[in-house]
Each structure stands twice: as structure tokens, then as C-alpha cells.
Write a protein that binds this DNA or RNA. Structure first.
Length: 282
DNA sequence: TCTTTATGGTGAG
DNA sequence: TCACCCTAAAGAT
């Protein structure tokens, strides 16, 4: 169940397994993609790119395999010919002499000419990747003030893949906590220093999630709680899924709400809706 | 064994 | 804003 950091980790595994050598065979489960099997067989795999939650496997000869895991897709990297113990349905397989990269359950798979990537309906809409360095703090300040983003509330803005790509529902809650911002603030209204702080939080939290495989909480604290026998779900995040429990930072009761049809969690004390932080707004 | 939920996204209205 | 698609796992019964 992936957000940008998890997709990038999967891409790393796939890249290690198949990039830099020829794919001996490629298999697609979807009938309309079968015609590409022959065209891709024997081709060198150049690289495995991610853009937000989308993955692109670039083949020599101008074709790229696009995939989006949505909620359910899952990559497995196996020794060639082995299959994972699962009841999932295989949707895509890329083999070489030693390994197989297998994508199960995903429904969004396509083959795109590399020259047409920028015209792809989903890719074309994506903002800069949260994991990349494409967006400096000053770039971020400018972006958040663009008319199309300036009036939006933070909770909605962070889920918009056209604003920054790769943030999903757990990162949204966690980034806002780290930035100290209430979900309903309008980032466009904030002072530049707070806008920079939000930009930094986006980068820091996604980078940490990438490094740790999804732990966004303070690492020392997470480690300590783990050592005390606390379950992963309980120490993983600052606020996400922790509704009704005490904030690790201030002890206040974490609140749970639904925004954009998705659950969001925040600390009412660490993320005040109004107060000193709001100077500069409105 | 049933029901609910999930870290996503689209398209209709 | 809602219904819907994809599918698995957790929770309820």
C-alpha cells in the first residue's frame, strides 16, 4: 500500500534486479498490452524511474512500461522462475537470466513511447516529486503562492499530486504535524518563513519515510518504543491513526477528522488553527 | 464466514 | 461529493 517513498523503495529493488541488462522475456496479463511482449523481449532495461506514485521502467528503443499500484499493486523480486506464495493475480513480469520482477494486483499498467511520456494524462499533471531536489525552499514559496494553489487548504493541497507528487494520506497528516500547521490553514496565506517550513517538512518527512520504510515518527522515540515492546502501528507515526491518544510531543489528545473523504489526524496543541502562527495570514 | 477498511485515483453530477 | 474500480487483511460475528 504505497505512497511515494514506498514506491521508490520498490523501484530500487526492481532496478537492482533488472536494470543494466537485457530483459529476456516480458509478460503482460492485459490483452491490449500483449503486442508489446515481442517488442520488449531482448531489450536492455535502462533504468527504473518514479514520479510520485507512478513507476516507469525505461527500455532501450523508446518504450517505457508505466505502472501505478494504487492501493493494491505489489512488486515482488524473485530468482528467475520462482513465484511468491500469494493468491494475487500476476499482471506484469519482466525476466532476465537470473531474476524476475513481478507486479501483482495492479490495474494501471501501460506501455508508452518515451517520447510521449510528457503527454501521458496522469504524468502530465504531476508536480515535482516530494523525494527529489527539484524544488528548493524558495521555489516552494513561489509555488504555494501561485493562484491555482494559493487559496487551497493545506490538507487538500498536500493530496493534490499536481502540487507535489508522491504524498498520500499518511504523509499528509505527518507532514502537517512536523510543520506545526493545522490542516485547514491556507499555506498561500502564511508568512514566507512558514511556507519554507512546510516545504522542509514535505522533504524531511518523505525522505525519512523512504529511509525507514514508512516510519515518520522521531526515530529515537520509535526505537525506544519498539524496544519497550510497543507494536509498530503504535510507534510508526506522530499522529496518523493515533486519534484519541496522547501526542508524543505535548500530551494533548490527537484529533481525528475526515477531510477530502479521507481520514486525517492532528494534534490540536502542536498544530493550532489560530494563534501566533497565523501572523501574516489573511 | 461475513463485513469493514485501506497508505489511490477517476468520472459523473 | 459520491459511487465506483482494483484486492487483501483485519475485525466482527
Amino acid at each position: 500500500m504505497p505512497e511515494g517513498p514506498e514506491v521508490r523503495r520498490a523501484a530500487d529493488r526492481v532496478e537492482r534486479a533488472i536494470a543494466g541488462r537485457a530483459a529476456t522475456a516480458v509478460h503482460f496479463a492485459f490483452p491490449h498490452l500483449k503486442k508489446y511482449q515481442k517488442r520488449l523481449a531482448g531489450k536492455l532495461v535502462l533504468s527504473v524511474e518514479t514520479r510520485g506514485k507512478a513507476m516507469l521502467i525505461h527500455f532501450d528503443g523508446d518504450l517505457s512500461v508505466y505502472s501505478h499500484n494504487q492501493l493494491y499493486g505489489r512488486w515482488y523480486v524473485m530468482a528467475r522462475g520462482r513465484t511468491p506464495k500469494t493468491n494475487r493475480s500476476l499482471r506484469l513480469a519482466i525476466h532476465n537470466g537470473e531474476r524476475s520482477a513481478l507486479l501483482y494486483s495492479a490495474s494501471e499498467i501501460d506501455v508508452i513511447a518515451a517520447s510521449k511520456l510528457e503527454a501521458h494524462p496522469f504524468l502530465a499533471k504531476l508536480g515535482p516529486d516530494a523525494l527529489s531536489r527539484d524544488l528548493t525552499e524558495d521555489d516552494f514559496v513561489r509555488r504555494v503562492r501561485e493562484p491555482r494553489f494559493a487559496r487551497r487548504q493545506a490538507h487538500a493541497l498536500l493530496l493534490d499530486q499536481g502540487f507535489v507528487a508522491g504524498i498520500g494520506n499518511y504523509l499528509r497528516s505527518e507532514i502537517l504535524f512536523v510543520a506545526g500547521l493545522h490542516p485547514t490553514v491556507r499555506p498561500g496565506d502564511l508568512a514566507a518563513e512558514e511556507q519554507r517550513r512546510l516545504g522542509r517538512a514535505i522533504r524531511r518527512v518523505t525522505a525519512r519515510a523512504y529511509r525507514t520504510g514508512g516510519i515518520t515518527n522521531d526515530l529515537a522515540l520509535a526505537k525506544q518504543l519498539k524496544a519497550e515492546g510497543v507494536r509498530r502501528a503504535e510507534y510508526r507515526h506522530h499522529v496518523f491513526t493515533r486519534g484519541g491518544r496522547a501526542c508524543f510531543t505535548c500530551g494533548a489528545k490527537i484529533e481525528r477528522a475526515v477531510m477530502n473523504s479521507r481520514k486525517i489526524f492532528f494534534c490540536p496543541r502542536c498544530q493550532p488553527a489560530t494563534g501566533p502562527r497565523k501572523q501574516g495570514g489573511r
